[in-house]
């Protein structure tokens, strides 16, 4: 049950989403990835994609204009 961190601060769409997708391919079921973003579109497209793919998703606002998208790989 490893936990990974992906620093996507300062990156615009669609980079945070593509980076998350690539990283998740290398992860095992049960692993968790924390994606750090400061681009509000990524707060929508990353969770939308992850939920559609069936993973568990949580969003946390950690500061003004900064979020963590936490995804648990379920399959």
């Amino acid at each position: 049950m490893a936990e990974y961190k992906l620093d996507c601060f300062g990156e615009a769409c669609p980079l945070p989403l593509v980076k998350t997708q690539k990283k998740m391919e290398t992860m095992n079921v049960g692993d968790v990835i924390v994606v750090e973003i400061d681009h509000s579109c990524a707060m929508k497209n990353i969770p939308d994609w992850a939920r559609a793919a069936g993973h568990n998703v949580d969003i946390e606002e950690i500061n003004d204009g900064e979020w963590e998208v936490i995804i648990e790989k379920t399959k």
Binding site: F9, G10, E11, D38, S40, N63, D64, G65, E66
Partner: peptide, 14 residues
Amino acid sequence: ATLFASQFKVKKIK
């Protein structure tokens, strides 16, 4: 809009 939502941030250049 971004100030009202408390989402203003000066982003760093990566």
